[in-house]
Amino acid sequence: MTTPSFGVGIGWRPEISGFVADLPGLAFTEVVAESVPSSGPLPAPLAALRGKGAAVVPHGVKLSLGGAEPVDPARVAHLAAVAERLGAPLVSEHIAFVRAGGLEAGHLLPLPRTREAVDAVVANVVRTQAELPVPIALEPIAAIFDWPDDELDEGAFLTEILDRTGALLLLDIANVYANARNRGTEPTDLLGRLPLERVAYVHVAGGAEHDGIYHDTHTDAVPREVLDLVGELCARRRPPALMLERDGHYPPAATLRAELDAIAAASGYPVIT
């Protein structure tokens, strides 16, 4: 499936909505799907972005595609409605679980990379795709541990899910770096085992190390190593849409602009600031 290239964007958050709205030539952004109402007025800043022609991608965080239980039809219906309201070209969600037995974890939790887990994810993605008006891109998460009963490496696990569902890949390049650093492996090794032709767009985010573990915080500056991975990715395939992901501790506007410019420089895109 061919996906459009929207250059460099930034995740829309209420705290930086003014900054996002003022970016010249912004072609795309992403919004947390659960924060957008399925009916009634859209948040005015999002409506303004749509009026300017920017693509807005709903990004789900609560479907629990990796759960053993079937996805909640009401949550799928909400995601579909938000995609329709925003005229979105696609939606995205995580390969993770967030609930079990009626309990909410409040966090994206990693799956054991087993064939049983592959079957569970595939079943939930297929259920979700049946209700969506647009394609879905699946995002592998950052994890600070691997389950002891893993049967597949991360590349094989992701590729089988994508092949069986036909879904696109939301590649979080910061997660690739975090997982490799915590496992003591080379992040470029994983890039070589992924179907990069299926990448719909890419998250770029910062992190920090605490007690010897690197955490994908989304509240720190993007490190040089992640920018280098952006360059490596763009050398291996046509540069995809790249999105700066920030979820707190928002720096001054000049700092955000500098991060966007650094991502553009690493990818070969023109700066948007």
Rank of each mutant, 00 (worst) to 15 (best):
T2R: 09
V118C: 12
S64I: 09
V125R: 03
H107P: 00
K52F: 00
D150L: 08
G9I: 00
E104W: 02
P135S: 05
E225D: 14
F6E: 08
A137E: 11
G106V: 09
I144W: 10
A100S: 15
L42K: 05
E139C: 03
P135G: 05
L244I: 08
A47E: 15
D220W: 04
L168A: 14
W147L: 13
E225T: 01
V202W: 00
W147S: 12
R246T: 12
E69W: 01
G9Y: 03
S38G: 15
D228R: 07
A265W: 00
V56S: 10
A96W: 06
T114G: 12
E225H: 04
H215F: 14
T188S: 13
H78D: 07
I263E: 01
A44S: 12
A264Q: 01
I173V: 15
A143C: 04
P133F: 05
A120S: 13
R257D: 11
V71M: 10
G40W: 02
T188L: 09
F97M: 08
D163P: 07
K52H: 15
D149M: 11
V204L: 03
E104C: 01
A167C: 11
P70G: 12
E116S: 13
Y250S: 12
A156Q: 13
L242F: 01
R198M: 11
G18I: 00
Y250R: 13
A143E: 09
T128N: 04
E209V: 14
I263M: 00
H215E: 10
V61F: 13
E225Q: 14
P140Y: 02
S35M: 06
A205M: 02
P112E: 13
V222W: 01
L242C: 06
